[in-house]
Design a protein around this nucleic acid. Structure first.
Length: 279
DNA sequence: AGTAAACTCCGGAAGC
DNA sequence: TGCTTCCGGAGTTTAC
């Protein structure tokens, strides 16, 4: 499940592609290209990659001429650089050949919750353009949001976990890093965000950015499908304190970690360390 | 208006 | 072995 650290890792491992020129894309499954009635072949063919960066959980390829190709990995999406001769893995939906050395960029996505968006040069600004469904607007990036802005966005009567998962409120977190951040800050996921004290907000802000930075250093968490652009697994899953540790002892107090439902998501909580909550 | 919950997409894995 | 159920990122819809 690629969240901010996994997407950031993919973007970093894709950097060698900057400056490369694209050949004619091959679309093996047309419905992974969303929205646009643009043709990917004419949109991308012959364009050079000017930059590759992350926006929230999206991977943005800046092509020369101002066009963008944006990828969202959904749950099981992978973006890999492979030799052309290498056999195609099942569920490979899109291939972007790189001119020159026999390499290509492959997009594969077993569950197809992810997708590709083509963004034309001109109409890019905020609201969606006429070509339908780019992405909804997103909140400030979780990795860099200031304490001040973070405090402001928490001033709502929602369960703190639901709020942190809401990309419109704050961008980049998913189930893993929300659970890890709340555990680290010792805050129960059911707590009403608006009732957090200033000290708790500070603690959560620090825990969240600390966790994200550590996860990026570890190359993300590989639970099942996630791989970097080089096909490498992350290893942050070995440092998880809460996520996926149901029934195992809390690393702080040895109480068994529980799994509960919050905002429709399975949530991993230490009932002792994260006991107090207000709603 | 703001929040919450249900439903949709999909296929692999886990459970029975 | 073979069936059913579960799971989730994010958008949409429906209900408080």
């Amino acid at each position: 499940m690629p969240e901010l650290p996994e997407v950031e890792t993919v973007v970093r491992t894709l950097q060698p592609l900057v400056g490369r020129r694209l050949g004619a894309p091959r679309v093996l499954r047309k419905d992974v290209v969303r929205g646009a009635r643009l043709d990917l072949r004419s949109f991308a063919r012959g364009r050079a990659i000017g930059a590759i960066h992350r926006e929230a959980k999206r991977i943005v390829f800046e092509l020369n001429g101002g066009r963008q190709i944006q990828f969202h990995l959904g749950m099981t999406g992978q973006l890999n650089v492979k030799r052309r001769a290498e056999p195609l893995a099942a569920h490979t939906h899109l291939i972007l050949p790189l001119v020159g050395n026999g390499e290509e960029l492959r997009f594969r996505d077993v569950r197809r919750f992810g997708g590709v968006w083509l963004v034309p040069a001109v109409k890019r600004t905020d609201g969606d353009s006429d070509q339908g469904r780019l992405f909804g607007s997103v909140g400030p990036d979780a990795l860099t949001v200031s304490l001040r802005a973070f405090g402001d966005l928490l001033a709502r009567r929602r369960q703190v976990k639901a709020l942190l998962l809401d990309q419109q409120a704050i961008a980049g977190l998913g189930n893993i890093y929300v659970d890890e951040s709340l555990f680290k800050a010792r805050i129960h996921p059911l707590t009403t965000a608006a009732l957090l004290s200033n000290a708790e907000i500070r603690s959560l802000h620090r825990a969240m950015q600390c966790t994200l930075r550590a996860a990026i250093r570890a190359g993300g968490s590989t639970i099942r499908d996630y791989r970097s652009a080089n096909g490498e697994e992350g290893w942050f899953q070995y440092q998880h304190q809460a996520y996926g540790r149901e029934g195992r002892p809390c690393r702080r107090c040895r109480t068994l970690i529980e799994r509960i439902q919050v905002a429709g998501r399975s949530s991993h909580v230490c009932p002792r360390c994260q006991k107090v909550f207000r709603c």
